[in-house]
Amino acid sequence: MNYFCNYSILRFLPYPETGEFVNIGVVLLASNGEFRYKIETKRQRVTQFFHKLDSKIYIRARTEVDQELARLSSFFSKHSQQQSTQLAAFKSLILPRETMMRFSSPGTIAVDRVDEALESIFDHYINLSFASKEYEEKVLERQLGHLLAAANLKQRYKEDRLGTSDYPVKFPYVLLDEEGAAQAIKPIHLGHDEPAKILEHGDAWLAKVRRLKKVQLLARDTLFIASPPAHKPKLAAAYTDIVDQLAEIDSVRVVSNSLPEQLLLDEIRKGIPESIH
């Protein structure tokens, strides 16, 4: 390893009261004097998470921090041979501040190439390169759990398996009544960056639902809460194909997780029998 790099993750935190944030960028200072930074240019990951936030607020804050980092790049380049000056400036940059744009505690990594280090850190913390579809769906399930808990509905559901002993299908939220499974809710991640991945994951759930339907063990209301992909024609076409095929199955509904919370709760309540409302 040729270089040591100090780095920090840039976070967008619009509501200090909740402490929730989205990682949007990386700043990095290498032992050879190089200063690098990268900020996510797409706003969807922020606006989907903070769906009530005016996107103009984020865009303005991102522009301001981008301009500040560009200015600092010139400073670090000018003092590339003064390591102590650079370190002091880097520490000052990432100091905790009461603003919407904040930096994480610093980390250190040993690397052969500084540019590759920046991309690697960015891919991990912003692109979530480690995340599988299972990881993504666990995040969606936790978000749904928080929503149900806030509406005093979570206690009515439990994780359960529907189907036969030879073919059990797990749903994270199942509501049971005297007649069996009244409602089963499944958050499904269809926000992949390739049409083939959307179709592959969607087809897997289509097969499960069709088999449950065939043996008459599908919940009377099966609600898929789907995370959509980016607004690109091929991705949208694959997403629509899966959603339409699921919705064609009797007693199956699909809604987007980008719906406002109240509308999402309204969709969930549609499947709760009147007898247990």
Rank of each mutant, 00 (worst) to 15 (best):
N2P: 00
F4P: 00
F4E: 11
C5K: 05
Y7E: 07
S8I: 00
R11M: 12
F12P: 02
F12Y: 12
L13W: 01
L13T: 14
P16S: 12
G19W: 11
F21K: 01
V27I: 06
L29A: 05
L29F: 05
N32F: 14
I39H: 04
F49C: 02
F49Q: 03
F50C: 02
F50I: 04
H51S: 15
H51W: 09
L53W: 06
D54P: 08
S55L: 03
S55F: 02
R60M: 07
R60T: 11
R60L: 08
R62E: 06
R62N: 01
T63D: 15
T63Q: 15
R71M: 09
L72S: 11
S73W: 08
S73L: 04
K78N: 13
K78I: 09
S84H: 06
T85R: 05
T85M: 07
Q86E: 08
Q86I: 01
L87C: 05
S92K: 00
L93I: 05
I94M: 09
L95P: 04
L95W: 10
P96V: 05
E98P: 03
T99E: 08
M100N: 07
M101K: 02
M101G: 01
P106L: 08
V111T: 07
E116G: 06
E116D: 15
E119D: 14
E119I: 03
S120W: 01
I126S: 06
N127S: 13
S129P: 06
S129H: 05
K138I: 15
K138E: 14
Q143I: 14
Q143S: 13
Q143W: 15
L144N: 09
L148R: 03
A149D: 15
A150R: 10
K154Q: 11
R156L: 13
R156Y: 09
E159N: 08
E159M: 13
R161C: 04
L162A: 03
S165I: 15
D166A: 10
D166P: 01
Y167E: 14
F171I: 07
Y173I: 09
Y173G: 00
Y173R: 04
V174E: 01
A182L: 07
A182V: 08
K186M: 00
K186Q: 02
P187K: 00
I188L: 15
I188Y: 09
H189P: 04
H189A: 10
P195Y: 10
K197V: 07
L199T: 11
E200F: 12
G202P: 02
K208Y: 08
L212P: 06
K213P: 00
K213H: 09
Q216D: 08
L218T: 06
L218K: 05
R220I: 04
R220C: 01
S227I: 10
P228F: 07
P229L: 12
L235S: 10
L235V: 07
A236F: 13
A237P: 12
T240M: 04
D244F: 03
Q245Y: 13
I249N: 01
I249A: 02
D250K: 12
V252L: 09
V254D: 15
N257K: 02
L264A: 05
L265Q: 00
I268C: 09
R269M: 14
S275R: 11
